[in-house]
Write a protein that binds this DNA or RNA. Sequence first.
DNA 1: ACCTGAACACCGTTCAAGT
DNA 2: ACCTGAACACCGTTCAAGT
Lengths: 248, 248
Amino acid sequence: MTEVNERRERARADRAAFPDGGSLSGAQVLDAALALIDREGMDALSMRKLADSLGVYPATIYWHVGNKNQLIAKVCQRVFDSIELAEVGDVPWTAWIRQLATSARTVMGRHPSLAAGFTSTIQVSASSLTLADRLMQVLEGAGFRGERLVMVYNTVLGTIFGWISAEFATELANSDSDWTAEYAAALNEASDEELPAIRRNLLLVANRVFMLRWTSGRTTPMEGSFDFMVETMIAGLERMLERDDRPL
Amino acid sequence: MTEVNERRERARADRAAFPDGGSLSGAQVLDAALALIDREGMDALSMRKLADSLGVYPATIYWHVGNKNQLIAKVCQRVFDSIELAEVGDVPWTAWIRQLATSARTVMGRHPSLAAGFTSTIQVSASSLTLADRLMQVLEGAGFRGERLVMVYNTVLGTIFGWISAEFATELANSDSDWTAEYAAALNEASDEELPAIRRNLLLVANRVFMLRWTSGRTTPMEGSFDFMVETMIAGLERMLERDDRPL
DNA sequence: ACCTGAACACCGTTCAAGT
DNA sequence: ACCTGAACACCGTTCAAGT
């Protein structure tokens, strides 16, 4: 308890060194929250710890950012804003989507704890509306219209952001001790009769594919598969476009 | 407080009517947890509420299922187990994947609150290993081998499960009152210069596409787009297979 | 084996009061 | 406008003790 007070005092001193002489800004709160999330994970984020790290009482956080849900939404926003889009018209639609995909994954990969729940947290904002509009422009440019445009748009965003959140998700059960050992054991017990394909490809897939890995994308990225997925989706869309060209 | 005791008493009475005379089984705990999640949402799940709903003290839950993370993992497992796979070899690989996709979405759609965080929670189990193995068999049968097999496998699972969790995710900010109004306002303020594509397609996309909807997949499903996404992925994989057939 | 009863440390949120 | 200090209701988890 005095320990907490000491930490608070130190943080307060740091804060006093700021240009404006110690008054907290909303941006500082968001930065501190993101730092805390990156350092200790999403589950460890609490309003009280965050307040402590800023040398301030919990209620102060509420004054700046509203409640915890809003705090998280704003942090996600901040990260989301740094996704870089190509100018519409500068590149072919396929290249534009590739750029969106790789930038989104790079940005979210810097904050894996956030990425896991990211899809739940997308909030309306200038930059999310901008992304939506640009993507729609690009897809219109490619020739998609009406109901088809809706489906293609959803396909692009759903696969890209859905994948990213799946890749960086942590396994809950991981919090337990010998989870890894248990997993490896289960995999090795895979018999030729029951799990022949896993057995055949064990070295190839162990800890490298969904449902057969015991570390998340944080420690074992799946960049190759992600890129392949994006290429597959684009190839699929091209084929859809060809089919669409024919008279129905 | 007496209110809680009353509820506990009633639940205990219900429990006493069970075949074995009132002793709690692990399965009963999981069923009650899933019911609570479906009824009040993931955030409302607490060990104490769950205990109350079973007419039991919190510590009893710990005896049956370990801690909260393990509880959630087991509940996910239970839902996951009801995904139905086609027999390998009974249908072409494309149909097999289609079946996996629609069954997975149907099953998860029955428990949207769970679906949102589902990717974080997949645990090793008999049925998840089985799914992994069958999918690998199917993809081998289609002609994918080695590193290519890894990427295709990840593409299939990453897009299907990633999408589903994105579709059924709730918007956090939704907990606030006039979120919808705010959103609609932001969309209507979309000017022709800043957001031309959204403006052009407003009626088409409003509340129907990712990042431009204010209700989640629970109330506004995106089945059409999901099916299209699956077809796109399959078409893309077919093209990848053709490319692969040519000498590199 | 299964459950009680109570405790511990922690949490989100609110609110009057200070400056 | 910005922050303190304290309070309220709730939470996950543990543990000795009961049967």
